[in-house]
Design a protein around this nucleic acid. Sequence first.
DNA 1: GATAGAAATGAGAATCTTGATCATCTGAGC
DNA 2: GCTCAGATGATCAAGATTCTCATTTCTATC
Lengths: 141, 141
Amino acid sequence: METSNLKKAGLKVTLPRMKILEILETSETRHLTAEAIYRELLDSGEEIGLATVYRVLTQFEAAGLVCRLHLEGNQAVFELERGGHHDHIVCNQCGRVEEFFDETIERRQREVAQHHGFAIKDHALVLYGDCTDSVCPHRPV
Amino acid sequence: METSNLKKAGLKVTLPRMKILEILETSETRHLTAEAIYRELLDSGEEIGLATVYRVLTQFEAAGLVCRLHLEGNQAVFELERGGHHDHIVCNQCGRVEEFFDETIERRQREVAQHHGFAIKDHALVLYGDCTDSVCPHRPV
DNA sequence: GATAGAAATGAGAATCTTGATCATCTGAGC
DNA sequence: GCTCAGATGATCAAGATTCTCATTTCTATC
């Protein structure tokens, strides 16, 4: 288990933090709600409170270990920060989330911001559509 | 006062709806939270409940009269729908919201979505930065 | 290793935003 | 003016997230 990330972030290496990192690293869905992580913890027999999950995720976010996305709907989802920045496409039907990066869009964003007198620091771009994937069912989440 | 929009949307022309529309039309800030609208109503002596504000805004949204944005932070903001689609730039310092439209970004979004096998239906793009406006104070909202 | 102190945790309360309920009220057509 | 569907307001409720605080767990130290 990779504990150096935690130490580097100035966070004590504790069991809840390691377990939560482990779930983020190994879950097949890369975008998880706090609740989903909490349920996985319960399922694997860990007695970790929901408040801790939220607290730890917030700390991870501050430390740059994960990033938090606000998709449509009221629950935030968290994903492990694995290097590069990217944006997201969400399927309206099955909730599947895909990642993409497009340099043209990134560049135009910087240009547009500059043109409006803003020093751009961050951005949130989410595309919503229907995925044509054959396995796409309707309304799973 | 323009009541035809309400009628067209199949909504009865009532005092709360007219007042809320009026605030959306005349407020200098074009992006208002439900709370902000509620407070303006109270300030102008109207006895309109917060629940009504939320209800009316949701109806306005369904009718295409306003659109609802989820910026960072937990409160949605509403803006009068005045024709074209556009995206937003938000100042991290003063909370000022500017609108923009960039055909290059729009086109690339469609291309990216198609490339990933998605029929794009909608998107949410918000840029965050520091505005270099001389009047920009820090942390008003 | 045992220990002390700081930091982290867990349980539940609290908060914040938003939607639902239901009795009362209001607007549109007659 | 009258009637009734639709709208409103007060309150309650739900869902997500944060806060509180007593208890527990790490980490550094002896």
